[in-house]
Design a protein around this nucleic acid. Structure first.
Lengths: 151, 151
DNA sequence: TACATTTGCATCGTGCGCGATTTAATTTTG
DNA sequence: CAAAATTAAATCGCGCACGATGCAAATGTA
C-alpha cells in the first residue's frame, strides 16, 4: 500500500499549479518595466481588445469576481491607466475606459508574447506543442466552467 | 494592425492561469471536508510521501520559498496536523513531522485524486490526454526552472 | 584561528483570489 | 403598481505568493 495516486508527481493538479506560477514569474521582468502585475496586464489585454466595457464583462473574460477585480481596477485607476464611470442607463454597472497612458502602454506590450515564447522554445518544446497545450487547456477550461456552473 | 498576438485567447499564459484556478476550485469541496486549503493539501502530499523532512526540502518539492511556507506550516501546526522541530545537527533547519491526526488524514485523502479525475473525464477528455498534458507540463516546469535558475 | 560567505528560517509589506455579506439599482412576477 | 427576485459593485476577512530584509548558524577561506 504505497498509494501511488497520492504521490505529488502522479497528480495532474501540481504541474498546472507550478507551471502557472513559473510562467507568471517568467513574465515578471517584462511587466516590471511597465510597472504592472500579471493580473493587471490581463485586464489591459482585455481593454486593448475591447475598450469601454463594463467591469463584470472583464470579470467574465478573466474568470474573476468583483471582489478581486474591484480593488485591482481601483489600483489601476490610481496608476492613471484607466477610468471608472458609472453607466447612465444602469446605475449599477461601472464602465472601464483606458486613459491615454493605458492606450500607449499597448505599444510597449506588443513584443512581450514573442519574447516569452522564445523563453519557452527549445529543441524539446516546439511551437506545435505549445499550440496543442493551449488548445487542450482551453477545452479543459470550458469543461470545468460548465461543471462548476451546473452546481 | 489588430495585434493578434495580444489577444487574450491567443496567449498561452491565460489558459494556464485560469485552468490552474479552476482546478483549485474543483478540489475545494473535497478539501473543505478535511478543513484544508489547496497549498496545505500539497504540503501533506509531500509529508505522506516523506515524513520528517526539513522545511527547505518541502519548499524544493513544491517550489515555494520559506516566506510562503513558514506561516503556512505554522498554521498547520496550530491545526495539529504536524510538528516543527529544530534539528540538533544544524540549528538552522526545522524538521517537519506529521502528527497522528496528520497521518490519519491520508486515508480520507486517498479517494480524492480519482474523484477529481472523474470530474474531468468526458467523451472529449480522455485519460490519455490528461497523461499527455501532465507530461508536457512537467517538461515545461523543468525548462522554466532551469531558465530561472541560470539568471 | 579570524573573517567573509553561504544557508535556513522568519518577518514585513503588497497584491491578488475568493467565500460571505451588504447595498443599491433593475427586472420579474403576481 | 407593489413585492419579490435578480444583478452589479463594494467591502471584509483570510490565506496564499513573493520581493526585500534581517538574523543566526554553519561553512569556506586566507
Amino acid at each position: 500500500m504505497d498509494n501511488q495516486q497520492l504521490k505529488l508527481n502522479n497528480q495532474i493538479c501540481f504541474p498546472i499549479y507550478s507551471v502557472s506560477r513559473l510562467i507568471t514569474k517568467a513574465y515578471k521582468p517584462f511587466l516590471e518595466e511597465m510597472g504592472l502585475t500579471y493580473p493587471q496586464y490581463l485586464v489591459l489585454l482585455v481593454l486593448w481588445e475591447n475598450d469601454n466595457i463594463a467591469m463584470n464583462k472583464i470579470g467574465e473574460k478573466l474568470l474573476l469576481n468583483t471582489n478581486t477585480l474591484s480593488p485591482l481596477i481601483k489600483r489601476m485607476e490610481k496608476m492613471d491607466l484607466l477610468q471608472r464611470k458609472r453607466s447612465n442607463k444602469d446605475e449599477r454597472s461601472v464602465f472601464i475606459q483606458l486613459t491615454e497612458k493605458g492606450k500607449k502602454l499597448k505599444n510597449t506590450a506588443i513584443p512581450i508574447p514573442e519574447k516569452l515564447l522564445n523563453t519557452l522554445l527549445t529543441e524539446d518544446v516546439t511551437l506545435t506543442e505549445i499550440m496543442l497545450l493551449k488548445d487542450t487547456l482551453n477545452k479543459w477550461s470550458d469543461i470545468l466552467l460548465d461543471r462548476q456552473n451546473d452546481k
